[in-house]
Nucleic acid binder design. Structure first.
Length: 559
RNA sequence: UGGGGCGUAGCCAAGCGGCAAGGCACGGGACUUUGGAUCCUGGAUGCGCAGGUUCGAAUCCUGCCGCCCCAGCCA
């Protein structure tokens, strides 16, 4: 095997290498991605997906998709489809291995009976409050439940009757019998089953008792023949119980749980609860609002799955809590889009320009490259005529020293067309607002260069007034103003009031009027844009995915 | 005053006793019909701190400090 290849999985890959070397699990690697169907997947899940599926693939193994649906009171079917769609979109495939923890309810029940028979589980009649009291605290040991020493027969009988619905919700639970004095609170007789009369999205009302995560997860892994059960750091203290369960039940070739640090990004929220609040209270337009860190939001915004996977590859896998710079994701995005996005000219804030010495009614066509990074992308024609529009920002009446765009008396190049020189500035006499520029063009500069070879520092984009199509463009900024959205006492106070700016009078090249939803482009000198589902025939709507790097803006920000 | 985990550059992260990879960000420069892209180039005498072992320590030992997680019949 290529021992000098950069390893993607960090310390987890090392464990897998070792396991393969020692013949553990017969050299197999089999992972699983276990989402709970109670919400939408977000960028944080993308890391887990890349690790679970990616490591299986890298080791010639398989990865199952398993919905962890052990709590019917907070789970719904509607999430199952969106989760599947998001994983597929990211580029991963679970083949025919789509499972649900609820598929195993019968077997899980049988294992529980076995646990009771081995004297390792008991039915407890304490209320939830009492269980909490008996559990003790971080610094004090817990006390044994008075029901802890019931006979195997009584436990068997009670547990069967729990299943058959003889008791009220919450009246009794099944608990593991481990050690109420353990310094690890998870080991203080954790609850295995609770009574819950809630219809389950898959099993209906077949069951009124449901297993907890702690109990169902290790066994589900074992049932599926999982070898490496990868999860996030907060489950680390559950590992002793994971091992205890499989050991007590004498499961052969028990899977092993390995924990890694979850992904955090600056300016980004990854709390399901808080994201839900943003949606429910209307701070965003929905789970797929292009400002949301959900995979559906990122998809609508225009992010490529490749860029997200590249991010995950670059951040590595480790156990240290970390916050990755959002800039790295944006870098991965630009790197990807730069290679593939076709270029177009789009004027977001139009300023009318009349070329005074250009013949009225004349139209010329110029060839221009679709993507200078990729000659095979070919060329297209752009139109030029007497009246054009340029970006308002590309003209300054009183420009600073280093501004090399258009200004009174200055010459610039119109991309792929002509050099023009500004002769006159027309203002609205009432407001003083610049409404129009009068320029002259140099006929010898056709195509963007002159025989005398004179240097023109600035090149700006434009559209021909009579050819351009009107479009709506939505500019997005970070949803939060603070690097850490959780900073302070209320994350809502950190919301960026200007996270969305809608521009309704943009003018774009005519070809863009037929853009298909999801198509991505580079608008020259602006950034990358994606056609939004809100587009209508003849009236396209574009989302700005990410701007181009802007060293000019950076220079301005310094002053 | 319990247990578990983690601390290498602004942010990630390699390193596994032999003289601190790489990426992002940042700074310089070249080139450029996108102030984009691309290409050069710069940064830890130092690896949380303090001791110790060793010819040699980010790597081993001891002590300390800091941060994160755990007291759901959530996952």
């Amino acid at each position: 095997m290529g021992e000098d290849k950069p390893k993607f999985g960090g310390f987890i890959q090392e464990i897998m290498d070792q396991d393969k070397a020692t013949g553990k699990y017969g050299g197999r690697v089999h992972t699983r991605f276990p989402p709970e169907p109670n919400g939408y997947l977000h960028i944080g899940h993308a890391k887990a997906i890349c690790i679970d599926f990616g490591l299986a693939e890298a080791n010639g193994g398989l990865c199952n998709l398993r919905f962890d649906d052990t709590n019917p009171s907070k789970e719904e079917v509607e999430y199952v489809e969106s989760i599947k769609e998001d994983i597929r979109w990211l580029g991963f495939d679970w083949g025919d291995r789509l499972f649900f923890a609820s598929d195993y309810f019968d077997r899980l029940y049988e294992y529980a009976v076995e646990l009771i028979k081995r004297g390792k589980a008991y039915v407890c009649d304490l209320t939830a409050d009492e269980i909490r009291e008996y559990r003790g605290t971080l610094t004090e040991p817990g006390r044994n439940s008075p029901y802890r020493d019931r006979s195997v027969e009584e436990n068997l009988d009670l547990f069967r009757r729990m299943k058959e619905g003889e008791f009220a919700d919450g009246a009794r639970v099944l608990r593991a019998k481990i050690d109420m004095a353990s310094p690890n609170i998870v080991m203080r007789d954790p609850v295995l089953y609770r009574i819950l009369r809630v219809p389950h999205h898959r099993t209906g009302d077949t069951w009124c008792i449901y297993p907890t995560y702690d109990y169902a997860h290790p066994l589900s892994d074992a049932i599926e023949g999982i070898t490496h059960s990868l999860c996030t750091l907060e489950f680390e203290e559950h590992r002793p119980f994971y091992d205890w369960l499989l050991d007590t039940l004498e499961i052969p070739e028990p899977p092993q749980q390995i924990e890694f640090a979850r992904l955090n990004l600056t300016y980004t929220l990854t709390s399901k609860r808080k994201l839900r609040k943003l949606v429910d209270e209307g701070y965003v337009r929905g789970w797929d609002d292009p400002r949301m860190p959900t995979l559906s939001g990122l998809r609508r915004r225009g992010y490529t799955p490749e860029s997200i996977r590249e991010l995950c590859a670059r951040i590595g896998v480790a156990k240290a809590n970390s916050v990755v710079d959002l800039g790295l994701l944006e870098h991965c995005l630009r790197e990807d889009l730069n290679k593939r996005a076709l270029r177009y000219m789009a004027v977001l804030r139009p300023l009318k320009v009349v070329i005074a010495n250009y013949p009225e009614g004349q139209v010329e066509e110029f060839e221009t490259e679709n993507n200078p990074e990729d000659p095979s992308a070919g060329t297209r024609t752009v139109h030029f005529s007497r009246v054009i529009y340029i970006e308002r920002d590309d003209f300054m009446e009183d420009p600073p020293k280093k501004f090399f765009r258009l200004a009174p008396g200055r010459e610039v190049r119109l991309k792929s067309a002509y050099y023009i020189t500004c002769q006159d500035v027309v203002k609205d006499p009432a407001t003083g607002e610049i409404v129009e520029l009068h320029c002259t063009y140099d006929p010898l500069s056709r195509g963007g260069a002159t025989p005398d070879g004179r240097r023109v520092k600035g090149t700006i984009h434009f559209v021909s007034a009579s050819h351009a199509v009107r479009a709506e463009v939505r500019l997005y900024d970070n949803l939060f103003l603070t690097e850490d959205p959780n900073e302070g006492d209320d994350f809502l106070k950190n919301l960026n009031p200007n996270s969305l700016e809608v521009l309704t009078d943009c003018l774009v090249e005519p070809a863009l009027s037929t853009a298909k939803v999801g198509d991505r482009f580079q608008f020259l000198r602006h950034g990358y844009f994606c056609a939004d589902p809100d587009s209508t025939p003849g009236r396209p709507v574009f989302n700005r995915i990410v701007s181009l790097r802007d060293t000019w803006q950076k220079l301005m920000d310094k002053d």
